Amino acid sequence: MKKAKIHILVTGASRGIGQAIFESLDQGMITVVGQSTSGEGGLISSDFSQAGAAPALWQQALDRLDGRIDVLINNAGLFESNPIAADDWLESWNRTMTINLTASAELCRLAVLHFQNRHEPGRIVNIASRAAYRGDSPDHWHYAASKAGMVAMTKTIARGYAKDQILAFAICPGFTMTGMAEDYLASRGGDKLLTDIPLGRVAQPEEIASIARYCALDAPPSMTGAVLDANGASFVR
């Protein structure tokens, strides 16, 4: 009997970690579809700041994947400065929460229901951040809070649905060489921040992608609920 391909949805797949994850999966017995805001390069266009975007993306992904998704990888995220004295502080807070946490939660909910309705195993991989545990700069309360929420959500899904063979993992990168990290490093003194990373460098997107691929395809079921750190020992738990 021919083995069915594994169908995977990756959000935030147009650059950085998401692009590296997408490219690492697009091979062999895997069919992967990706999301980005613009939808360039054959990705599905979905703006998570807009109401209804996550459910619409899920349906479009199902349409492209013959009605079956086996793995959801939530990577899409927003990282923007939000000084506490800013007049639009709450607006920025809400926008980050909507994109980073609420959209991911909507997709996780749809994935769990999909796996349950099909009576088949499924996996969820959430890309969080070191900031979930260590916190972030004074201008990034919202980012740290959104990623902490993502970790708590992942653990809750793992505990609640392991009986259904629905597995959930979170990955917490530190600085990774993406556009977001480059901007942040430049704003915070560049190389001076590297002194806080015992490894002496930031991570490469391909390193995080290799962890995501492992969680999506090979991690043993007993690992469900695990939070994997990848920060060059800049924060150890």
Rank of each mutant, 00 (worst) to 15 (best):
K2G: 02
K5N: 12
I6Q: 13
V10E: 14
G12S: 07
G12M: 12
A13R: 09
S14P: 05
S14M: 07
R15H: 15
G16M: 11
G18S: 13
I21Y: 14
F22L: 15
E23L: 11
D26S: 15
Q27R: 15
G28K: 13
G28Q: 13
I30L: 12
T31R: 15
G34Y: 08
Q35C: 06
S36C: 05
S38L: 07
G39F: 12
G39K: 03
G39D: 12
G42D: 15
D47Q: 08
A51C: 05
G52Q: 08
G52T: 10
P55Y: 07
A56G: 08
A56Q: 15
L57P: 05
D63R: 10
L65D: 15
R68Y: 12
D70P: 07
D70S: 08
L72W: 08
I73V: 14
N75I: 04
A76E: 07
G77M: 09
L78G: 01
P83F: 07
A85S: 05
A85Y: 05
A85E: 12
A86E: 08
E91S: 01
R95M: 00
M97T: 00
T98Q: 12
I99S: 05
T102E: 06
T102I: 06
T102D: 07
A103S: 15
S104H: 05
E106N: 09
C108H: 03
C108S: 08
R109G: 01
V112C: 03
H114N: 04
F115S: 03
Q116D: 10
R118Y: 03
H119A: 12
E120S: 04
E120H: 03
E120D: 06
R130G: 04
R130F: 04
A131S: 11
Y133Q: 08
Y133P: 00
Y133E: 06
R134Q: 14
G135W: 06
G135I: 00
H140L: 09
W141Q: 01
A144M: 01
A145Q: 08
S146P: 05
K147D: 14
K147Q: 14
A148P: 00
